[in-house]
Design a protein around this nucleic acid. Structure first.
Lengths: 134, 134
DNA sequence: CCGGATCCATGATGATACTG
DNA sequence: CAGTATCATCATGGATCCGG
């Protein structure tokens, strides 16, 4: 893709993928989209309001923030608290399970940071050689 | 992209994550697609040939397997060895970096299995309540 | 401020047929 | 066996307008 999307919800085409899956697709179907992890990481820093999340995550649109938070709520990762004030005030915070997931995600992020350069080199090499295998 | 959020709040997990997205998007842009992790997990079991991978991953098409393995090769996760025999014989194996990534992915898969039920319940509850905020 | 609803562009994926 | 090529499809996500 440049991995832009990847279904967040199980696609209609999804295959059986029985036990070979290791359940890995389960998570990726939830956080593999463009924004979920970013919201997760931001909320791991503390309680946030809608507008705060929007400002903290450059490039996200109102719609995608709504869609993403809602999805995370549905999956039990995020808790939403609306105060009936004027103007409206809504707070988002991670549930214990959400915190747990954020921790697991952070491990992967650490891996990414540690190997960023190596991946870049491998890619540059591949591109320079035109995809051959010398 | 630079982060614009106002203040860095104390970390919940102790990990700094101070910059931007912690680089988490970097990995997800590589393995967040539908097939990469499945190929990764299968190759973590040992060397595989093209057909073997195809059979081991239900639902993947020839094209997507080609695209996916090639991408993993380009990023330095997989090594491709073609034997000039008849019929052709091509072997794929993880590089050390690929093994490393597979390990990190396995951790996430473990999380997934451990919380599968909890997520299912949360989702069922949400759906039953029509997305309300009880 | 916090969204919901709609239209639309894009790109990942799938199906199928064809080579070496 | 191990791909390559081409076309069709459909979710994802962006833009925008509207309402509470």
């Amino acid at each position: 893709m440049s991995v832009a999307h990847t279904g967040v919800t199980p696609q209609v085409h999804g295959g059986p993928c029985g036990d070979d899956d290791c359940g890995i697709r389960e998570v990726l179907d939830r956080i593999g989209d463009r924004w979920s992890v970013l919201v997760l990481v931001e909320l791991a820093k503390g309680v946030r309001r809608f507008r705060e999340l929007e400002r903290a995550i450059p490039g996200i649109s109102q719609r995608m923030l709504t869609v993403t938070t809602r999805r995370l709520c549905r999956d039990g990762m995020v808790e939403r608290t609306a105060h009936p004030t004027v103007p409206p005030q809504v707070e988002y915070r991670l549930t214990p399970m959400g915190e747990s997931l954020a921790g697991a995600v952070r491990a992967l992020a650490d891996w990414s940071r540690d190997h960023r350069d190596a991946v870049g080199e491998a890619r540059a090499k591949w591109d320079a050689e035109g995809g051959a295998t010398p």
